[in-house]
Design a protein around this nucleic acid. Structure first.
Length: 570
RNA sequence: GCGCCCAUAGCUCAGUUGGAUAGAGCGACGGAUUGCGGAUCCGUAGGCCGGAGGUUCAAGUCCUCUUGGGCGCACCA
């Protein structure tokens, strides 16, 4: 018997029914559209709905309600049939209605929901997993900030989105690799080295101006001091050809270590740190440009090498090697993505700040030029973050080196609140991050609200134990005692979790998780205030303990996906 | 000038990828506790989905135009 996701049951019976209708030639269905079953948006419309009658109607040019009638009648016959043609008991379906322009609405029985609830306990921490991904390999690349300064709050949002999406994709049955691409060559690195060198010289008393485009943050001074402590005045009279490479490497290493530390404190761990410099070292950039030339996709003009990206939907061709012989970042990005695809990922996902959106068509173009389907690369653009304290906006200026860093935010509000807040909006919406709200310990703060629900459940079990009530297992409990509409709503919400995880994975929209958690917590708190879990009625107590335990499991599993703690006490 | 994103309740935002009577949180107002955590709950008010056309059985959702905001348009990164 297949218990659980009701959609599967409904899809099965619809498929069977339509097959029979076709076979009996009751209806002439030449071109069957996909059968889509959805959770009904309103209780009045039952638990599951399908618009299949309408989609068939539009193809066959018949009346939708007529087709719905035929389908429903056939389903009734199947349900009544003595032959075991269905993989589930017919008592799982209470009622089927045709409504509106031709929707078919399915009302599931209490027995179906109560039976289904058991899978939550059976699966425990695995609950919510699915085989959607079929072990397909995907890579998610995110953050990838230049090692020229500490991560700021915008990187934090990207980090949260990437890390949590990775957790979701794993839960949905993908094999996921998280990667950070280190831009450790090029102009910005040179500027970093120069900035550090000049600070070094200034600290040692040389009166020289600081460059306009230099990195002005205090951290540069700190690094310069560090070099003085280790090397003294050695570099004061060295030629730039000697000192600059040292300063560049020294500074970038310290900054990168800082980035790693910040990410670790934020709960983000990468599987792979990929160096751009490494691409040059093994000659991959030149190799890929050579191949593109062979295929006629790159050409020389005006002393530079160009990619024929306009052939693939980009608005113009782009330079790969400049007239002065230097590669553009685009060149190494091509080599990098070529390398990614060589590593045999079924899907590559790049998460970028929205200010890079102009780059998307270019990258898609190159993926196609390399012979892959353009959807093999997906990009998520994360919009910017405004930091606020209550109603007051906190000014951020990266140019001047005064900006709120990720580590400052994490230190102030904690990792849990920060991760949750970054996921409170869809990625393509601007995000106002209210530091005051993130610290508040009341229901206004959604993180506390959700964690509180979990702590409250833990507390119920503490009390139960104190009263000598053993925590029951599903086998010995009569779930049929859960009769109130609020309890049914809770059960249905719990049972929609696997579906939610799949939706997050399919649409690459991890923010849905925080909305789900708030809904679930709210329904639980409501029910909690209305009914007592622990009462004189031992059987009812047991049934409710099972329900509450299942809610706790889902809250915990969802919080775990967010990388947020599920506290027993707060 | 061209391109991308956004516009939905006073505020901040969801909206099951085209479905039925558009939702939540916050804020406002009014209520709830001899018992499991009041760090909670319930109720009320609040809408021309920025505007105008179009596509179809059906549009907040898709197309065109338009208004306002954000961000990009280098042989920069």
């Amino acid at each position: 018997m297949k218990v659980g996701v009701g959609k599967e049951i409904i899809t099965e019976i619809l498929t069977l029914s339509i097959k029979m209708i076709k076979a009996d030639k009751v209806l002439d269905i030449t071109d069957l559209p996909p059968i889509i079953v959805e959770r009904s948006r309103d209780e009045k419309f039952g638990d599951f709905s399908t618009n299949i009658a309408m989609t068939i109607a539009s193809i066959e040019r018949k009346k939708p309600r007529l087709i719905a009638d035929i389908i429903v009648e056939n389903i009734h016959n199947s349900l009544k049939s003595e032959d075991e043609i269905l993989s589930f008991p017919s008592s799982y379906i209470d009622k089927i209605e045709i409504a509106g322009p031709g929707f078919i609405n399915f009302f599931m029985s209490r027995r179906f929901w109560l039976d289904s609830l058991k899978i939550v306990e059976d699966q425990g921490s695995e609950y919510g997993s699915s085989s959607l991904g079929n072990n397909r390999r995907i890579q998610i690349e995110f953050v990838s900030a230049n090692p020229t300064g500490p991560l700021h709050i915008g990187h934090g949002r990207g980090a949260a989105v990437g890390d949590i999406l990775a957790n979701i994709m794993k839960k949905a049955g993908y094999i996921v690799e998280k990667e950070y691409y280190i831009n450790d060559v090029g102009t910005q690195m040179t500027i970093l080295g120069k900035s550090t060198l000049i600070r070094y010289q200034q600290l040692l008393g040389r009166d020289i101006p600081f460059p306009e485009d230099g990195y002005k943050g205090d951290y540069i001074n700190d690094i310069a001091k560090d070099i003085i402590a280790k090397k003294g005045e050695y570099f004061m009279d060295q030629p730039e050809g000697v000192s600059l490479p040292f300063f560049t490497e020294f500074a970038s290493k310290i900054i990168l270590d800082g980035i790693k530390k910040d990410l670790e404190d934020f709960g983000v761990k990468f599987d792979n740190w990929f160096s751009e410099k490494g691409l040059y070292d093994i000659g991959e950039v030149d190799e890929v440009i050579g191949r593109l030339k062979e295929k006629g996709l790159a050409y020389e003009k005006d002393n530079a090498v160009w990619l024929r990206s306009s052939m693939f939907g980009d608005e113009k061709d782009r330079v790969l090697i400049r007239g002065n012989g230097q590669h553009t970042y685009f060149a190494s990005d091509i080599a990098y993505h070529w390398d990614k695809f060589k590593r045999d990922f079924d899907q590559v996902i790049d998460i970028w700040g929205a200010d890079h959106h102009g780059y998307v068509p270019r990258m898609k173009a190159i993926v196609e030029a390399m012979g892959y389907h353009k959807d093999a690369l997906k990009t998520i653009l994360v919009q910017l973050v405004n930091l606020k304290r209550g109603n007051e906006q906190i000014a951020m200026s990266t140019r001047e080196g005064k900006f709120t860093t990720l580590s400052e935010v994490v230190r102030e509000v904690g990792k849990d609140a920060a991760r949750f807040f970054f996921l409170m909006r869809s990625s393509d919406s601007h995000l106002d991050f209210d530091l005051d709200l993130a610290r508040k310990e009341s229901k206004e703060n959604p993180v506390y609200y959700v964690q509180y629900a979990h702590a409250r459940i833990s507390s119920i079990f503490r009390v139960a134990r104190e009263k000598g009530i053993d925590i029951p297992t599903g086998e010995e409990v009569d779930l049929d005692l859960l009769k109130s509409p609020e309890e049914m709503t809770l059960i249905k919400e719990i049972l929609s979790f696997p579906e939610l995880v799949e939706k997050c994975a399919i649409y690459l929209e991890p923010h849905r998780l925080t909305y789900y958690l708030q809904d679930l917590a709210s329904i639980f708190h409501n029910c909690y205030n209305k009914y007592r879990v622990i009462s004189e009625d031992r059987k009812l107590t047991n049934a409710r303990l099972i329900l509450v335990k299942s809610i706790g499991t889902v809250l915990k599993n969802a919080l775990l996906l967010l990388g947020i703690s599920a506290p027993e006490k707060m």
